[in-house]
Design a protein around this nucleic acid. Structure first.
Lengths: 227, 227
DNA sequence: TCTTTTTATACGTTCGTTTGACTTTATTCA
DNA sequence: TGAATAAAGTCAAACGAACGTATAAAAAGA
């Protein structure tokens, strides 16, 4: 697991490369792949336009490198939860109630990304990939979406006594994730409904509590063993 | 409430206008606003490039006309549910259980749009507006998103005994909608998780049942009067 | 004839990419 | 160590292609 998004080295070229990646992340996030021109990315990075071709080959490969960096960075975030869950599962101490707690923790982690300034730019790129995947979507899926989604599905299966491999459980897990995604992807709608300009920490707290309540209700309500 | 998306008239010019709107809806949906060029939209409509300027002024106004048509069309879909709910509310026969049923009906209606070939193109345009709103987003919000969201919030408030005007209830309603949006906006992720190429009728049925279960569990689990 | 609609063509801008010269940094070898 | 050589990095300028838009003439309909 890496700590920094785009780890830097003292090398001259590596630093320019890193500046370009950070600038590309910002511009791609702000304006999308097509509307972010290589010229403004280079300007943002304090580099020449030709540097992109020099370091990455072309614009598309630069974008792929950004996605790869995001996948490795965020993928590491959830690996901690995954390891913890698998450890308890192996020890046989992961019952329905504990699984529900893992689900809550995962959704809160996902939710946390919506508000931390750290992830502001990453979120925009990811949301765009979710709603209209590029050719490099596979990079995000393989290293982050798939393992995270699979973990959540296992937890849902454990929490309500359903087969984690069945389509129903996969779909159910997906629906539960949607409760978080709504605040990222339909952001403008909820902002207008609340009559505010941006979601603050107080809203993050409210949403976290609401999601906990929903998870609790669904897990208790649907598990035949707990009713 | 209008039946057709872009109502046609026998007029010569109106038909060309309508062809352009339909072609624009398709292209904007498939490739997004920027990647859909006015030339290919005109080709798709069997019209000349200059026809867009002639009938709509410019590309942006054409796009706004498409959004306006969508808002009027979909807005009408939910007006039936809204009228029904308000009628029962006025009659005093809208208790928590009935409100929960209205919520289920709304989510199923929203879900239905994901699968009918009729709405395939509309969905793409709407999802793009949700994740990165254009200057014309207000057209969608005013005539369709706002009334629908408000109705759902009222039903959630009634179903679990919460103030429909409180931020918590608004946020809760939004989270519940997210369960449907996930299948539209994070479509590629769920497709890969299921190992399929597209969601079919059998998945629509599963998802509908899952959402019913979740709504039921949340409404029952959170309403102090029913526990 | 007069208005409405359609057409081909051109304009100016911006895009991603390429080129070749220039400067800086690293390596080699006397 | 220090000059010579190679490699790595930077830069301004230009290329062809695609874009949205504008124009003015031709065609069609009233």
């Amino acid at each position: 697991m890496q700590r920094e998004l785009f780890p830097s080295t003292p090398n001259k070229g590596e630093q320019a490369r890193r500046k370009l990646l950070l600038a590309a992340l910002k511009k791609f996030g702000d304006k999308g792949y097509d509307n972010a021109s290589v010229r403004e990315i280079a300007d943002e990075a304090g580099q020449n336009v030709a540097a992109i071709a020099y370091y990455f080959g072309n614009k598309e490969k630069l974008y792929a490198a950004v996605l790869q960096g995001i996948a490795a960075h965020i993928g590491g975030l959830f690996r901690g939860i995954a390891d913890d869950a698998e450890e308890r599962q192996a020890a046989g101490t992961l019952g329905p109630a504990a699984a529900a707690e893992v689900i809550k923790r995962m959704l809160r982690t996902l939710l946390g990304e919506q508000f931390g300034g750290e992830f502001e730019k990453i979120r925009n790129v990811m949301m765009r990939e979710q709603s209209s995947p590029s050719d490099s979507f596979g990079l995000l899926y393989k290293d982050m979406l798939k393992p995270t989604h699979e973990l959540l599905t296992r937890m849902v299966g454990t929490a309500i006594g359903e087969d984690p491999a069945s389509p129903v459980t996969i779909l159910r897990a997906h629906a539960l994730i949607g409760q978080v995604l709504a605040f990222a992807m339909a952001r403008e709608t909820i902002l207008r409904r609340l009559g505010i300009k941006k979601l603050g920490a107080e809203h993050a707290a409210m949403i976290g509590d609401i999601l906990d309540e929903h998870i609790e209700a669904v897990c208790l309500g649907l598990n035949p063993a707990t009713r």
